[in-house]
Amino acid sequence: MKTIILAAALRLFFPLFIFFSFYILIRGHNHPGGGFIGGLILVIPFIFHVLIHGAKETQEKLFLKRVYSLRRKEQESDLGYSIRNIGYRLRGLIPWYSRQDKDRVLVKQYVIEPLHIIPVGLSLSLIAGILPLFLGEAFLTGVWAKAALPLIGKIGTTLLFDIGVYILVSAVVLKITMEMSKS
């Protein structure tokens, strides 16, 4: 299924799906949608990526993070190098601003393993449950902030809970698809 058109289309749809899924998550409290549906939508482009490129490549492209440093110039002072390097590292955090310098060195690389995201989702939901306990409320009570945010609306622990669901569902589905595709 390695078609160029699909691959190109996917690149286009990637941010779209991500934003759409987030939109579904946020509006879920008042309209059809919610963390679960949102999470499923979030993984759609990833699944397509897996289907098109295979799990190995998906991992390589989407989940492999590399951290680079600049190569040290000759006779450069420690201080100067450090300043330059920190600047470079900071720029590296912004995806579209990172420079493909030739004189960089790979410091370390790590794979973002969906498995490690699973407990994050679980603990977010759990925290949403435990927080109200400290406010003297029952477990999993919805506690709401006084002020409302623009676009998102009122913020409450239920939203946090739903975000936990969202993260977990996407991580789980991603993990399952990637494992199945790998084997």
């Binding site: 679960f36 569902v169 789980v172 399952i176 199945m180 084997s183």
Partner: peptide
């Protein structure tokens, strides 16, 4: 049902892999 669907999905995915 929503809960049941999700749970069912988890179990069924597991079952597919098991059969495989």
């Amino acid at each position: 049902i929503l809960t049941a669907i999700v749970i069912g999905f988890g179990l069924q995915a597991f079952a597919i892999v098991l059969v495989k």
